[in-house]
């Protein structure tokens, strides 16, 4: 059975168009990769609401801060590895410290960016964005959720970061699926193990849950799209109900969503946890699915981790 797939960045582009149609103060900025991030759609449709900053990520972040101070609502985008990495100091000191209303999108995140290789695979961005005070961090699971997250960013005041990949990924949600920043979404109920996922790993987790069900293991699946602020109630409730947790993300094992869940549980309800993530190594060139398999970011890894963590209960 073929699954419908759309790149998450399409959701970002769509949301930008909707936002600008409703509010001409919304302005999109990019650093020479507008076609890739889909902010180029704004350039095509609302050229006055688009600025190409050139290959200058730090200036991109700083100028966005100024635009916010000048009364506009800037949405910046470039590849996540440069957006979060190269412009980190600007995001920290100029955007977050001032609590400026700048929205930041990290595109082509994760190892699934594929053949471009390690230099372009952002696997650390969630960690370094998450530590910043005032920052909201979202890793949506599909194009529609990316769209909703982007729209939601416009409704809150303060810096926000959304990260998404390059590849077309399975559609998990539709227009009617509820979305609220900071509220985890329960995708599937279960009682033996709670699989908490974000990004493209939500789909993999749902597939893993089906496999586990065939083996009479009842897995709950939670889409923890908002990594910060984390939905403490949902995470703790899932851990209490299932007694153990698997986290799954397309990110380094240290500092990402899995770490956020571990921090939350350590404080509120310590429970065994297994981490599906990149195991503290850099990526390499390869086809997206090939890499996801090679680095253990797939449903079979999740199934194995679920069994392992259940045994630790």
């Amino acid at each position: 059975m073929s699954v419908k797939k759309i790149p998450m960045r399409d959701g970002y582009g769509k949301a930008l168009l909707e936002l600008i149609a409703a509010n001409p103060k919304v302005i999109a900025l990019d650093a020479d990769v507008a076609k890739s991030t889909r902010s180029g759609w704004v350039k095509d449709k609302f050229p006055d609401n688009f600025i190409d900053m050139g290959i200058a990520e730090q200036d991109l972040a700083g100028t966005a801060a100024g635009l916010a101070l000048g009364g506009m609502l800037p949405f910046t985008s470039t590849y996540a590895v440069f957006m979060a990495g190269r412009a980190w100091d600007e995001i920290r000191t100029t955007i977050c410290y001032n609590n400026l209303n700048v929205k930041i999108a990290g595109a082509h995140a994760g190892i699934s960016v594929g053949p471009d290789g390690a230099t372009h695979q952002a696997l650390e961005d969630v960690a370094i964005m998450r530590v910043l005070p005032n920052m909201t961090v979202v890793c949506p699971c599909d194009a529609e959720e990316t769209r909703k997250a982007t729209l939601a960013f416009a409704k809150i005041d303060g810096p926000c970061y959304v990260r998404f990949g390059r590849e077309a990924v399975p559609v998990v949600t539709d227009e009617t699926t509820p979305f609220e920043l900071g509220k985890a979404r329960l995708c599937r109920e279960g009682s033996d193990v709670a699989i908490i996922a974000c990004g493209a790993m939500v789909y993999e987790s749902l597939e893993a849950a089906k496999v586990l069900a065939d083996e009479n293991i009842s897995a709950e699946v939670i889409d923890l799209h908002t990594v910060k602020p984390i939905d403490v109630d949902a995470v703790v409730a899932a851990a209490k109900k299932c007694g153990c947790v698997v986290t799954a993300e397309e990110h380094q094992i240290f500092g990402g969503m899995g770490s956020a869940v571990a921090e939350c549980l350590a404080k509120n309800f310590p429970a065994p946890q297994e981490f599906i993530a990149i195991q503290d190594t850099f990526g390499e060139s390869g086809q997206p699915q090939e890499l996801m398999d090679a680095y253990g970011l797939n449903q079979s890894s999740i199934v194995a981790a679920a069994k392992k963590v259940i045994a630790r209960k």
């Binding site: 594929g114 053949p115 290789g117 230099t119 060139s285």
Partner: peptide, 12 residues
């Protein structure tokens, strides 16, 4: 740019 190739998408 293939998995396992020494010829990475960007030079290493």
């Amino acid at each position: 740019r293939e998995l396992g190739s020494i010829f990475q998408g960007h030079p290493s």
